[in-house]
């Protein structure tokens, strides 16, 4: 697991000094600096936009509009927030506007459920009843260990596809939070800023999202463990 942590993108990609330098380079018209920024963040912008607009093609357009806004706006960037937060803010503002316009064309199913069953992290049948004489509310069907080295399977392309599929099926807010926190590695504080959420709300959404991904992974890992 240690190796996995090391391979994650650093949460604060742009240290303060490096960021100030980058902003200067962009203002000076340094194309390599802009290219590096696009390479690093374009995928993120598209994924984040999808959570508002639904369709990938529309999200792609919103991401491109965001870059154009960055190009024309960088001279006015006041450095009151980080460049990353500024970038994500431009994206979310545009995506929200676009999402409202497209709302009629998005199929209802893609908006995601938020009902009662959605609130539980684990199938309630896996616990003993609360009035059980012994260990009420304890595991009846406990989760099994994924072994000492689950990374090999968890990092496989097949697993990655499964994870992205589960995330794609989450409600918009859950998807936005897990995308920014766990895929992009933003801090909780930055996620709250970008999505304008309270700390508690951010954590609740993150919890639901992670719990659902875990559930899918558990099913997948248990299947693979069968002889």
């Amino acid at each position: 697991m240690v190796s996995l942590v090391a391979s994650r993108p650093p949460s604060d990609l742009l240290a303060r000094d490096a960021e100030a330098e980058l902003v200067d380079s962009l203002r000076a018209g340094d194309e390599a600096a802009f290219a590096a920024l696009v390479d690093r963040y374009h995928g993120t912008l598209v994924r984040l936009a999808v959570t508002y607009v639904g369709q990938r093609s529309v999200a792609e357009e919103v991401a491109q509009e965001t870059w154009l806004a960055v190009i024309t706006g960088i001279d006015r960037f006041e450095r009151r927030s980080s460049l990353q937060t500024w970038l994500f803010r431009i994206l979310t503002n545009r995506a929200k506007t676009r999402g409202q316009r497209e709302a009629r064309s998005i199929p209802l199913s893609s908006l995601g459920r938020d009902d009662e069953a959605d609130q539980l992290s684990v199938d309630p049948d896996r616990f003993r009843p609360l009035d059980a004489p012994q260990w009420p509310g304890g595991w009846a069907d406990p989760p099994r260990s994924w072994g000492p080295n689950p990374e090999e399977r968890l990092l496989a392309a097949e697993t990655r596809a499964l994870i992205l599929e589960v995330i794609g099926g989450l409600t918009g807010n859950q998807r936005a939070v897990i995308t920014l926190r766990d895929i992009e590695g933003l801090s909780a504080e930055d996620v709250c800023n970008v999505l304008e959420l309270s700390e508690t709300n951010q954590r609740v959404l993150l919890h639901r999202a992670r719990s659902k991904v875990r559930q899918a992974l558990e099913r997948y890992m248990d299947e693979g463990a069968k002889p």
């Binding site: 697991m1 996995l4 942590v5 391979s7 994650r8 993108p9 390479d39 690093r40 995928g43 406990p142 989760p143 099994r144 260990s145 994924w146 689950p150 990374e151 968890l154 990092l155 697993t159 990655r160 994870i163 992205l164 995330i167 897990i178 766990d182 895929i183 992009e184 590695g185 992670r210 719990s211 991904v213 875990r214 992974l217 558990e218």
Partner: peptide, 19 residues
């Protein structure tokens, strides 16, 4: 096991990034 699975999940999601 559950807590361990949650930690592994977070790491696996982090690795699902595609550029």
């Amino acid at each position: 096991n559950y807590v361990e699975q949650m930690r592994s999940t977070v790491e696996a999601v982090g690795a699902a990034r595609e550029e």
